[in-house]
């Protein structure tokens, strides 16, 4: 038995390493924890306070472990009138969706969890478009007015955010002339696509906040009126799970942004190994993107749902279409 396992690991070391260690499960867990810690400390500084300091000697790094332990130790309360199977299933499945999409992101030359040549960019968007469905299931199966309103708002917000973001990605695909994320990254060796696709990038960046449901557009979970939106009824480990889904979602969209506009794993040579070098640069870019995201989160008040839809349909979709037209013209001129 043991021999068989060892043999299996030896022969399949590369894919197993990708799935379990990097950029797979372990990386996702560690990075989620890091992102939460980073968000807390960074936002605390912007708010003129310290953030967690006590648990763990240096910068309160153990605080998250403590919080996670506390949440896991808490009772999981199933609301009496909730549709219990769906309630559990939707929350547990939630982090899987963006994690599955991350499997398509190249972290180095030909180094993705799932090295699929061809239609990876549309596949990524297709997988990510499942995410709101699980949020709607969560809100609906909780059988609570707050969660239900939160779920409905997610539908509206998707209408406002998903279409422009897909059109922006279409612009990149037209410019690159390929559907393949790996090829798109390779084409950015000399020039990042943020320069030719600047209009598209603006659309992507604004819709990005609708897709990750963070501050200017955290409309579905609007704390001031909906308590915690679709997540209100979740407690303990299930709540932790939904938070995990939230952060992996942020991670997935940030990674797509880096891949499409900021040259993916490209960067100056730091490590001799190209895969190590790629992973290093993608992490650096990820941290910069997260810093910008958190700064935006803290600088704006939440939009109302009708304002978000107006932003999406009056400004972002026309801008994205203009970007596509511009791209087509530039390409046909042979730039």
């Amino acid at each position: 038995m043991l021999d068989w396992i060892l043999e299996f690991v030896k022969t399949n070391f590369q894919p197993l390493f990708r799935i379990i260690i990097f950029p797979g499960l372990t990386f996702l867990f560690v990075f989620t924890i890091f992102a939460v810690w980073f968000q807390r400390k960074y936002l605390a500084r912007l708010m003129m306070r310290m953030g967690p300091v006590h648990a763990g000697k240096v910068l309160g790094w153990l605080q998250l472990v403590a919080d996670a332990l506390k949440l896991i130790a808490k009772e999981i309360i199933l609301p009496k009138y909730a549709y219990k199977k769906l309630f559990l299933f939707s929350a547990i499945t939630l982090p899987v969706i963006p994690a599955a999409a991350i499997a398509l992101i190249p972290f180095g030359p030909n180094f993705a969890i799932f090295n699929l040549p061809g239609y990876t960019a549309p596949l990524f968007l297709g997988i990510m478009s499942l995410y709101p469905i699980f949020i709607i299931l969560m809100g609906w199966s909780s059988n609570n007015k707050f969660t239900l309103i939160g779920a409905f708002r997610t539908i509206y917000l998707d209408v406002a955010g998903e279409i422009p973001i897909f059109l922006a990605v279409l612009g990149v695909m037209l410019w690159a002339g390929t559907y393949d994320l790996q090829t798109i990254v390779e084409m950015q060796k000399n020039m990042w696509f943020v320069i030719p696709q600047f209009l598209g990038f603006i659309v992507f960046f604004i819709s990005y906040f609708a897709m990750i449901e963070k501050a200017p557009m955290d409309i579905p979970e609007a704390e001031t009126e909906l308590v915690f939106g679709y997540r209100t009824e979740y407690t303990g480990a299930l709540f932790l799970d939904t938070m995990m889904g939230d952060y992996v979602n942020v991670l997935a969209w940030s990674l797509l942004m880096i891949t499409l506009y900021f040259g993916g794993y490209h960067g100056p040579q730091v490590f001799p190994d190209p895969i190590l070098n790629g992973a290093f640069w993608i992490l650096i870019k990820l941290i910069i993107i997260l810093t910008i995201t958190f700064t935006v989160i803290i600088s704006y008040a939440r939009l109302r749902i009708d304002q978000a839809i107006r932003l999406g349909w009056y400004y972002l979709i026309p801008l994205a279409l203009a970007n596509i037209v511009l791209t087509v013209i530039l390409k046909s001129l042979g730039v």
Binding site: L43, M47, A215, T224, Y300, R302
Partner: peptide, 12 residues
């Protein structure tokens, strides 16, 4: 904060 700001302003 009631307008949906993260608690930044309230803490300021």
């Amino acid at each position: 904060e009631s307008a949906g700001w993260n608690p930044a302003i309230f803490i300021w």
